[in-house]
């Protein structure tokens, strides 16, 4: 610090120009006399960051530059970046909504397809059942018809048997009378009372 301050004092008088880098020390008027017009100039040889003579200039230019920077960012840049980010967020949300909508549509389509499938299955089952029922009904009707025919034939046959049996049974009496008359005639040799015979046969038959 001591060395550098001495060095700085050497180079100060040349300061208003370009960088004092390599400038020969103009120590001829190195005293404070040349700089008395600026109050803080006496401290010029100090450590530069603590040199109060530069403060007004630094503060002024910092205020100007930082103020403009702040206004520019606030008015132009930040709304723009904020807008970009907002737009992107909205767009992503919108796309997600779209995707959700499409998914629900796809789900609905799948549900509709399955519904149709079950309906078609039910319909096919119905048609099959109907066909089965119809075939069965027809078969039943046919069977009933055949059975009816058979039954009527049976009844007819039975009726004929009954009539034959009845006529046969009716003839049994006269046969019995004739037989018994013949037997009585042979045994007794006399005339047989037909009426008494018929009564006896009748009683025997019960």
């Amino acid at each position: 610090m001591l060395v550098t301050s001495a060095h700085a004092q050497e180079t100060t008088p040349a300061a208003p120009g370009a960088e004092p880098h390599g400038t020969p020390p103009a120590d001829a008027h190195g005293g404070a006399a040349a700089h008395t017009e600026v109050p803080g100039e006496a401290a010029h040889g100090a450590f530069p960051p603590f040199d109060a003579s530069t403060f007004p200039s630094q503060l002024l230019w910092l205020a100007i530059t930082f103020g403009l920077f702040y206004l520019f960012l606030k008015r132009v840049v930040l709304p723009r970046i904020g807008g970009i980010l907002e737009l992107r967020r909205d767009r992503i949300a919108q796309d997600l909504d779209q995707a959700a909508l499409m998914k629900s549509e796809a789900d609905a389509a799948v549900a509709a397809y399955e519904q149709e499938l079950t309906e078609a299955k039910a319909k096919a089952n119905g048609i099959g059942q109907q066909a089965r029922d119809a075939a069965k009904g027809e078969a039943d009707a046919q069977r009933r018809k055949v059975e009816g025919e058979l039954e009527s034939k049976l009844a007819e046959a039975e009726a004929r048997i009954a009539s034959i049996k009845a006529s046969a049974m009716a003839e049994v009496g006269s046969i019995a009378e004739d037989t018994s008359a013949a037997i009585v005639q042979r045994l007794t040799g006399g005339k047989v009372d037909r009426a008494a015979l018929a009564a006896a046969v009748k009683a025997a038959r019960g």
Binding site: T4, A15, P16, Q58
Partner: peptide, 13 residues
């Protein structure tokens, strides 16, 4: 001058 580490902080008008 080259090794003066404070030189870089000088303020020039």
């Amino acid at each position: 001058d080259k090794v003066d580490p404070i030189h870089q902080f000088h303020i020039n008008k």
